[in-house]
């Protein structure tokens, strides 16, 4: 596949990168490229300038702050997340989700920032970021900086709160409350077709706190009614199934070659139930 003619630059600093991104309305940041290069091959977007941010050290770090929160640079690759000592055994499931991303070659290039900014409904980090209550740090021209909560960050199909000329710098993920775990469950049909992420804290075999996010939707979607119904529910399959039965209410999944929206709505409660149970039983995929 042949890309359309395009210009390229490789800034040395974030400021330079933002300046370059503001030099043209069709400039795009090139991170790991594991999605953007495909967009360019298909000539599916008009891009006149690629701003290569892969070598910006300022986007690279993983930091654990004193309050237990983690700050992950947008340019950190999946492989770096999966292999990070700081994330080993972390209950937030970030390393595991990174380790399960696509395949080794993609993990060596693809970045968490690219994953959330591309905002493909099948991307695996957006629902996790929402479930974990992450905050996105976005930089703009002339030193502008703003924080956006993950819930407000994803604005639609392939769109986010990052505006033209802005750059995602890092993501801060707060500590989980003591004893909470993450359950992350996909139904995969070639690619993920339905996904749920649950953060659950139990007390005496009952759910004390719950967050539930449904993925594989244009916007990763929290289900507050289900979260409320889960509180006080015993950790049994029957009880959790009852509480998550409405997990698909009001959501509008996509139809494609793999599955219809109708089917996806039918299986969203199943993945929701499984994610909650996995979280309640100590984490990740259970």
């Amino acid at each position: 596949m042949i890309l359309a003619p395009v210009e390229y630059c490789r800034p040395d600093t974030i400021d330079e990168a933002i300046e370059a991104l503001n030099s043209s309305p069709d400039a795009r940041a090139l991170a790991g490229g594991q999605s953007l290069i495909n967009v360019l091959k298909m000539r599916a977007a008009a891009v006149d300038l690629l701003v290569d941010i892969t070598r910006l050290e300022e986007l690279k770090g993983i930091v654990r702050h004193d309050d237990g929160s983690l700050e992950i640079g947008a340019g950190v690759t999946y492989a770096e997340l999966a292999e990070s000592d700081l994330l080993a055994g972390d209950p937030r499931a970030i390393a595991q989700v990174a380790a399960d991303t696509v395949d080794p070659q993609v993990r060596h290039r693809g970045t968490i920032g690219g994953n959330v900014c591309h905002a493909d409904p099948i991307n695996n980090f957006p629902p996790l970021m929402v479930a974990l209550g992450a905050t996105m740090h976005v930089l703009g021209p002339d030193g502008a900086a703003r924080d956006v909560s993950a819930e407000e960050f994803f604005t639609g199909f392939f769109t986010t709160a990052v505006e033209e000329g802005e750059l995602l710098k890092s993501i801060t993920i707060p500590a989980l409350s003591d004893g909470a775990s993450v359950g992350y469950v996909d139904l995969e049909i070639g690619e993920a077709a339905a996904r749920a992420v649950a953060v659950v804290r139990t007390e005496d075999d009952q759910i004390a706190e719950a967050r539930l996010v449904i993925g594989c939707l244009p916007i990763p979607t929290r289900r507050p009614e289900v979260e409320q119904a889960l509180v006080g529910t015993p950790v049994t399959e029957e009880a959790v199934a009852e509480a998550t039965a409405g997990a698909a209410e009001g959501v509008e999944p996509l139809s494609d070659a793999d599955a219809t929206a109708e089917y996806r709505k039918a299986v969203i409660p199943v993945v929701a139930k499984r994610a909650v149970l996995a979280a309640a039983k100590g984490g990740h995929r259970g």
Binding site: Q34, N38, T54
Partner: peptide, 12 residues
Amino acid sequence: RTIKSCMMLAVQ
């Protein structure tokens, strides 16, 4: 590290 050379630019 392994990468897919169709998912990178030569300039990189």
